[in-house]
Simulated scan of single mutants.
Amino acid sequence: MSETVSLDYGSEEGDFYMQHIKRTEPFERTNHFHGTYEIYFLLSGQRAYFIKDRSYLISPGDLVFINKHDVHKTSDVGRPGHERIVINFSDTFISKDHPLYHPSLFNVFRQPAHVLSLKLQDQLFAQSIIGKMDKELREKATGFETYIKLLLVELLLFSSRYAERNETVPFEHASPLHKKISEIVQFINSNYDQPMTLSGMSEQFYMSPYYMSRTFKEITGFTFIEYVNMTRIREAQQLLRATDRKIIDIADGVGFANIAHFGRMFKKLTKQTPHEYRKTHR
């Protein structure tokens, strides 16, 4: 069997999710983002990780922290096969009114770099916490949900303190091409409200349109236009949640010249109309 799932609890967009998988064959997780925080712990193998606008080389013992709504994608490096544990949790799982809540718990998700490369002793400590979570979710003894929150808080607090004491892994691009695509992604993230075309961007970054299109898809998992539209829609979601601006003004503000096109793209990516989304998230 090429994939062994030893734990699969909850759903990725739910309040709490944990999955433990071992793979022996090539695997690439497609680009995606979600409204939950993610912790990724690599147990064996090596992975390339594209997060937001940077690429990282991930080795066993590394802890990866991905903030909610950040685009990310993993792919193989070297020999195929890896083992990893993923934890996702929502804002409501450890909310501000929870007795265990403290703002510092989330500091590790807001750092410029997304990876903690743990020393061996700290790897074992983090793995022991995650192992206890795994055991609780399998056995589901009395109060296991409460203990899971306690263990998650311990892991987050340990990680935030570790990040304060130690330098995070300097992000290193897998290749000069990864660096170039990261520069393009950073430009899109900062200028999504401006008109953008593949031909214009390829000229600006000194690449042929065909080569840029192919490598952008290969590294990020998105076509160029998919990424531009997705970035604009994510910003529109934030504005719909946090402001009372008219939908037509939001569409124009995030770079859509046509309100109908905005509506189609929004429904395609979120499965809701802008009006439905605002009503659900207010």
Rank of each mutant, 00 (worst) to 15 (best):
K52M: 04
D53I: 01
D53W: 02
S55W: 01
Y56F: 06
Y56N: 00
L57D: 07
L57E: 10
L57N: 08
I58R: 01
I58A: 03
I58L: 10
I58P: 03
S59W: 04
P60L: 00
L63M: 15
L63I: 09
F65K: 00
F65M: 05
F65T: 03
I66E: 01
N67L: 06
K68H: 08
K68M: 07
D70P: 01
V71E: 05
K73N: 06
K73V: 01
T74V: 10
T74L: 05
S75T: 12
V77Q: 07
G78E: 03
R79V: 15
R79D: 14
P80W: 00
G81I: 00
H82Y: 14
H82K: 06
N88S: 08
N88K: 07
D91N: 12
D91Q: 10
D91I: 03
S95G: 12
K96Q: 14
K96V: 11
H98Y: 07
H98A: 07
L100N: 08
Y101V: 10
P103C: 02
F106G: 04
N107I: 04
N107T: 09
V108P: 01
V108W: 00
F109N: 02
R110Q: 13
A113K: 08
A113N: 15
A113M: 13
H114D: 11
H114R: 13
L116G: 05
L116V: 08
S117Q: 13
S117E: 13
K119R: 14
K119E: 15
L120A: 10
D122W: 01
D122S: 07
Q123V: 11
Q123K: 12
L124R: 11
L124Q: 11
F125M: 11
A126W: 00
Q127F: 12
Q127N: 12
Q127R: 11
S128F: 04
I129M: 05
I130V: 12
I130R: 02
G131K: 03
G131E: 04
G131V: 02
K132W: 09
M133I: 13
D134A: 07
K135A: 15
E136V: 05
L137S: 05
L137Y: 04
R138F: 09
R138H: 15
E139L: 14
K140M: 14
T142C: 09
T142D: 15
F144N: 05
F144W: 15
F144Y: 15
E145S: 12
I148N: 02
I148P: 02
I148V: 15
K149V: 06
L150K: 10
L150H: 12
L150P: 03
L152D: 02
L152G: 02
E154I: 07
L156S: 05
L157H: 11
L157P: 03
F158N: 04
S160K: 03
S160E: 06
A163H: 05
A163W: 03
E164T: 08
E164K: 12
N166W: 08
E167I: 06
E167L: 10
E167T: 10
E167H: 10
T168C: 13
V169R: 10
V169M: 14
F171L: 08
F171H: 09
H173Y: 11
S175N: 06
L177Q: 14
K179I: 01
